[in-house]
Computed example of a mutant assay.
Amino acid sequence: MTTNDEAAAAPDSRYAAALDTAEQMLGFRLERFLGASPGEPVNGADFKRIATMHAFGDVWPRDEHLDTRTRALVSVTIAATLGVLEPLRGQLRIALNVGATREEIAEVFLQVAVYAGVARAFEGYQVATQVFAEGSEG
């Protein structure tokens, strides 16, 4: 049987581990996006914590059936298809950081163009070229 203190510490350690996984995949600490925004309700922090733990603590580490590189390319495809450009930027960074090539990512956008539309793919590819340029700097 666990004590209340142990039960309270378990989510904190899971959250910390999820944040560490996010940093490894993104190349930067995620906390800069998790702070409270003006007017945000108190339980907004719960949403951010739960979403972070689910994505980077529960789903991304699963590699028994889908390796991380493939999962990243799938995530790029989904974000591009949905047209969610800031999440796409993060998914592109993850894909590059876990070994996907720029050429593979370009192929993803060809696939998006066929099944989700050229305009949607072109808009997402513009984000990809910005992320590619980040890797060329420095």
Rank of each mutant, 00 (worst) to 15 (best):
R89D: 13
Q111D: 10
R62C: 03
M53L: 03
K48R: 15
L66H: 07
V98S: 02
F33P: 01
R49L: 11
D58Q: 14
D46I: 13
Y115W: 11
V59E: 09
V108P: 03
A55L: 14
Y115C: 06
L26R: 12
A79F: 01
E6K: 04
R32M: 13
A106N: 11
Y115P: 03
L88C: 06
F33M: 14
L66N: 05
A95N: 09
V114Y: 08
T81N: 06
H65M: 06
S75V: 03
L30A: 14
G44P: 04
A95V: 06
G83C: 08
A22R: 07
F28D: 09
A116N: 08
R102C: 00
A106E: 11
L88S: 09
R93F: 01
V59L: 15
T70H: 07
I94Y: 04
T52R: 05
A72N: 08
Y115E: 03
P87E: 10
P38Q: 12
G57P: 08
M53T: 12
R71F: 04
A7L: 15
L82A: 11
G44M: 09
D67Y: 04
E31A: 12
E107P: 06
I78E: 10
E104V: 04
A95R: 05
T21P: 00
L85F: 02
N97S: 06
N43I: 10
Q91G: 00
L88V: 10
E107N: 12
P61H: 10
F122H: 13
G99N: 09
A8C: 02
A9Y: 00
E103D: 15
A106D: 13
G117S: 09
A16C: 01
H54F: 14
A55I: 09
W60C: 04
V84D: 12
T77D: 03
R29P: 11
V98T: 11
A55Y: 02
R120H: 02
A121N: 10
A36P: 03
T70I: 06
D67E: 13
A116L: 06
A10L: 15
I105M: 05
G57E: 10
A45H: 10
A22E: 09
R14Y: 01
N43P: 00
R14I: 11
A16P: 00
A17Q: 14
T70M: 07
A8Q: 08
A79L: 02
T101D: 04
Q24T: 12
R69S: 06
A72G: 07
F33S: 08
